[in-house]
Nucleic acid binder design. Sequence first.
DNA 1: CGTGAAATTATATAAGT
DNA 2: ACTTATATAATTTCACG
Lengths: 141, 141
Amino acid sequence: MDNVDYKILEYLKANSRTKASTISKEIHLSVSAVIERIHKLETSGIIKNYTVVLDESKIGNDTSALMEVSLDHPKFYESFTRAIKENKNINFCYYLTGDFDFMLKILCKSSEDLEKIHNNIKNLEGVSKTKTYYILKSVKD
Amino acid sequence: MDNVDYKILEYLKANSRTKASTISKEIHLSVSAVIERIHKLETSGIIKNYTVVLDESKIGNDTSALMEVSLDHPKFYESFTRAIKENKNINFCYYLTGDFDFMLKILCKSSEDLEKIHNNIKNLEGVSKTKTYYILKSVKD
DNA sequence: CGTGAAATTATATAAGT
DNA sequence: ACTTATATAATTTCACG
């Protein structure tokens, strides 16, 4: 990971479909060298994946919320996190220090949808306390 | 946005550098048609961007936290959100209903780094109350 | 909307510095 | 590690169903 790798990552972060030939011109390195470096970033695991950023509201996902969750006992950690990972309406989930155990984000089509998802999570084994905040606006994402 | 578009998006979500020729074989549609549909998804804004998912810990970003922020008055919204958008260590920021106004995520190299970023945010104009939670583990992201 | 073929670009491979 | 040259493969363009 030298400075050249960082520059390549900056181009890929801005647009992961940027052609190696474009990056090559920008950073004054041969196309082969750029591709070789990208492959190394991939195989070393620094690049985990390439993905697409969607305008969720344009495909009907207009409702989102943050949810705090606490578990009764650490023994429920495995089953809880498994359920979270499987739930397609949950974007992220972090395990935290402090007043509660997890913070997760829900993204869905409607408030009725949100209610269902919310209830599903509340009813997972070991879930004791929850608190939910509607997202009014995504300032940055 | 028909079912074919959804399928294409699923492939691109899983790997945005998937070749149109690969998708073509999977969904039994000509390469040209796949590319045409992708272009339409791009120009319509459904696809906002292509990006790369990095293993942040492998590039030294080992520390992350969630931070709740409240503002004294709505008049500080513009300047606050501008500062948030400019801060490269802030991954997301949501404007919420409830006990506080914003929830944001900080990603950085160390706890000393976190302390600085945390203080910068606390000292932004209009910031009244904050509360910070260390992220122990990213269960899902 | 979709297909298929030709033209253009990109990527992969390999040999040399 | 980088470069150049060549081979293979992908994308773009366009005429047509």
